[in-house]
């Protein structure tokens, strides 16, 4: 039936429009739902979402040890060539040579915070930090070395 469909179309349309208006009307009257953060004012109690991605950092424990094996999985995963891993060879007590991390170079100016490196890491050595105030006066300051000086790989991480 053409006429029946026509009329039911009209009623459905009006109904769905009213549904949308009800939601916006709810937000209009309920100001507690507002999610805007007045950033520079509330710097102390800033409430960042859990999954916010600010920059890549390497995790170090209290013994200044990290979990990076220098496998370069993150370097390969990075779409922008943000990460450059320089490796060295350690000599183990048994006299074997073993590949280890020398310098984890991270170019923040190239990073798009895509999180692919963190996902690629087999040992969870790196993660995304929530810091976001990255502005500096010189571009070279954005090239960072992520492993701390004197740090070494944690025992038992392969």
């Amino acid at each position: 039936m053409f006429l029946k469909k026509y009329i039911s179309d009209i009623f459905n349309a009006v109904g769905s429009l009213l549904k949308g208006m009800r939601l916006t009307g709810f937000y209009f009257t309920h100001h507690k739902e507002i999610i805007t953060q007045q950033y520079p004012d509330n710097r102390e109690q800033l409430n960042l979402p859990e999954r916010f991605r600010g920059e890549v950092v390497m995790l170090h424990d209290e013994n200044n040890e990290h979990a990076c094996t220098g496998c370069t999985a993150c370097e390969l995963a990075c779409p922008n060539a943000t990460i450059k891993i320089i490796t060295k060879f350690d000599v183990t007590p048994e006299g074997k040579k073993k590949k280890a991390l020398d310098t984890f170079v991270y170019h923040l100016e190239l990073c798009t915070m895509c999180n692919l490196c963190v996902e690629a890491c087999p040992t969870d050595a790196i993660k995304m930090a929530q810091t976001f105030e990255h502005s500096v006066y010189d571009r070279s300051q954005l090239t960072k070395k992520l492993n701390r000086p004197g740090s070494k790989i944690r025992e038992g991480v392969e």
Partner: peptide
């Protein structure tokens, strides 16, 4: 518009 879009 701000209040309807959950802004200030």
């Amino acid at each position: 518009s701000a209040y309807m879009q959950v802004r200030i």
